[in-house]
Nucleic acid binder design. Sequence first.
DNA 1: TTGAAAGCGCTAACAA
DNA 2: TTGTTAGCGCTTTCAA
Lengths: 331, 331
Amino acid sequence: MTTIHDVARASGVSISTVSRAMSRPEQVNATTRERVLAAAAELDYRPSTAARSLTSGRSMTLGLLVPDITNPFFFDLIRGTQGRSATAGYHQILIDTQESVELEQHHIAASAKESDGLVLAASRLTDEALAAAARTVPLVAINRSTPGVSSVVIDTPSGMGQAVDHLASLGHRKVAYLSGPRSSWSNARRWRAVQQAARRTGISARQLGPFPPTREAGAAAADAAVHAGVTAVLAFNDLIALGVLRRLFDRGLSVPEDMSVVGCDNTFGSDFCHPPLTTVSAPIEQAGQLATDMLLALLRSPVPSPRVHELPAVLTIRGSTGPVPRPRRSE
Amino acid sequence: MTTIHDVARASGVSISTVSRAMSRPEQVNATTRERVLAAAAELDYRPSTAARSLTSGRSMTLGLLVPDITNPFFFDLIRGTQGRSATAGYHQILIDTQESVELEQHHIAASAKESDGLVLAASRLTDEALAAAARTVPLVAINRSTPGVSSVVIDTPSGMGQAVDHLASLGHRKVAYLSGPRSSWSNARRWRAVQQAARRTGISARQLGPFPPTREAGAAAADAAVHAGVTAVLAFNDLIALGVLRRLFDRGLSVPEDMSVVGCDNTFGSDFCHPPLTTVSAPIEQAGQLATDMLLALLRSPVPSPRVHELPAVLTIRGSTGPVPRPRRSE
DNA sequence: TTGAAAGCGCTAACAA
DNA sequence: TTGTTAGCGCTTTCAA
């Protein structure tokens, strides 16, 4: 393996000059620099990241923690963060915390050593734990805001409010919110938004669940909704909504004729399922990019004061919502 | 930050004893060990990975290179590799090579320093380049086999053959293969399998494309297929097939009444699109797990001889294929 | 079973 | 502008 010493020898300079030529080219004489760089290229020299991070204290690695790697929401996020960290010359390590608070805690503590900073997606930590973590390692949270922590928040609640308005204007009077995980901050916000909009429009909204944010759980959610006698459901996320669609179909019910369905996030698949899902479009990839940019900024200038960025989300109406079913008359 | 020295001081031993207590507990006296471990826990000591990898030469990191992070095929793969590397105590770094040979080359060379090994998904490298890379760094390829390189290959070609049989038995006589990227090894294999099966069953198969493996490209593919006058298409992957479905719908054509559509891989979405896609089910997640296991084995015992594992893929028939349209009679 | 000491490859004062 | 040198935190001989 080629080391800095080999390059130094080959170009007839000291190792510090090589080091400078690599890291701060402007600090070395142009001709020397060229000679060193040529030798380095010749020998195919690549600085050891281990040694580099040992001395510099920086690993040029960013961590992305997601609660469930199988959820398409996080795919979009991964795209966003990966792109930005790559451009900035950082590697990204990807960690699945499997919806477990303990695992998340553990990985935050562990990653603090390997990464220069962390992006936490949909953290399940308590406010205190999250704030404490933010004091340990530079960190930006996505869809999880708490004092003392920089974050990017997607305003899906307002989209959910729009969805309730939409349903009300279609004549629905009884709707249900299909709740996501209890520990999800977004879930609480969405349900609150649904309640407020329901009050405002004078319709009745109840909560069903909680359900795991998966397609499988959508089946149970669908049954619960039918049993509750509502004419429309707003799901915590598209995955649950997709599961609802499937279960309703299997039970011989039509969407939106028998039941209207609204998803949330507009993740992969929600536009080509059947019928296409009315959902709240969240700029997830952009959120990932923004969070990475904020983290990068944090690394440059240690925390002036935590920032919270809110990204708008807007209702996208597609085929899964329609007028409330009229009571049939026998002919 | 707590270092090995702090723990040594706190427990009244030398740093080498602390080091041993952490890395090779059996080499240190039980009572001493307990004392050291207690002190370490007390001080919340975590060995620096940088220092560790500098001395040990191992980074406990595995790299996963994918050509396109937005392709659902790779999501399933990420799941598989991530799970296994996590269990083995390795971090995973994720790299998007953006379908670029140069970027792939670059990242392989770069990652060789940071990672202990690499999983290359659908490598676009030439045989020589790939074999050369494998000599540089422990590596397992997925869906890309070449002498001297360990790999996991999913037998989608045989599934494609089954698909042709299936179409033939439905009465189709003219089908098209919607080609993926030229540099894709899988693409060549699939097209060959389609040709062979077509010859065997006595139907005509032609190739259309190449098309980028995206939903967007599926639109162009659909138009090309209609223009070619075929009654069925077999797409390089589900993404293209999904795009075809959409385009056909937009053009007012029905699937499978006017055209049968077959996808490949059975990735997320292919079961809930409309109509559900007949496709070749590839055990992608399992491939990711297997590749990681093989890589881990490689790390333990340096290459006995490269292994190739083939995983079976089987045709899954759903709603997007049906009998060939009968010429309508006017009534 | 333990400790002393020599690095691993690099960066960053400090001197020259 | 360049070189010398002292580490960064750890692992690993080698002795004791």
